[in-house]
Design a protein around this nucleic acid. Structure first.
Lengths: 96, 96
DNA sequence: TTCATATTTCGATATTTATCGAATAATGGC
DNA sequence: GCCATTATTCGATAAATATCGAAATATGAA
């Protein structure tokens, strides 16, 4: 991972609300993703005070940084984190 | 570490030039810090195209996030990273 | 003390960002 | 086909940010 990409990852995690969003997705059970009963965006939205358009915007930035993946299940959106991406960015700053 | 603090850490690392600054400080030998022959800001400045005021600004943000520490040695400023801070922030997003 | 070097502060500016409300799409249930 | 729900897009705005050049400060050397 080069530093430009890492900076993008860190930028995606640099907003408090967006970081919270990431953490909530991370805490939903990844194992339930395939069953479609994992992390629904609508449930996360309800736990935030900020509006849906803003959350949609934040989600897109996390996606763009490849920190998460999403999948449409009918009317709902299921989310999960891509742990490797955060790990790769950390490895850069840890100079490994 | 709470998520507000972590967001601040990530914000400090979210600008490409600031991240480069952090990495250059990280790569200077920490063991040489006490001898005063470690990472001089002036040497780092010369390896950037951006101006001194901007670097000073970025340095302050890294300091403010406690990602680095600095010490004045006569006319020069010596810098070193505080590895623990980056590690703590990463532990939060790794959900450890 | 005068000078050169290192660093910070100040003031300005152009860009980016977070957020909102309104409108729009997509989807499944009735 | 109509409606409720979910999610995105659009347009606007206020705040934050990166950057610059000029000026100021600090420090050691001559």
């Amino acid at each position: 991972m080069d530093s430009k990409k890492a900076a993008k990852i860190f930028k995606a995690l640099s907003n408090p609300n967006r970081l919270e969003l990431y953490l909530k997705i991370a805490d939903s059970h990844e194992s339930e993703f395939d069953a479609g009963c994992g992390c629904f965006l609508v449930d996360i939205m309800n736990s935030f005070t900020i509006g849906a358009p803003t959350i949609s915007h934040h989600l897109k930035e996390l996606l763009n940084a490849e920190l998460i993946e999403t999948e449409k299940r009918g009317k709902l959106l299921v989310c999960r984190v891509n742990k490797a991406m955060a790990e790769d960015a950390f490895r850069l700053i840890a100079r490994e």
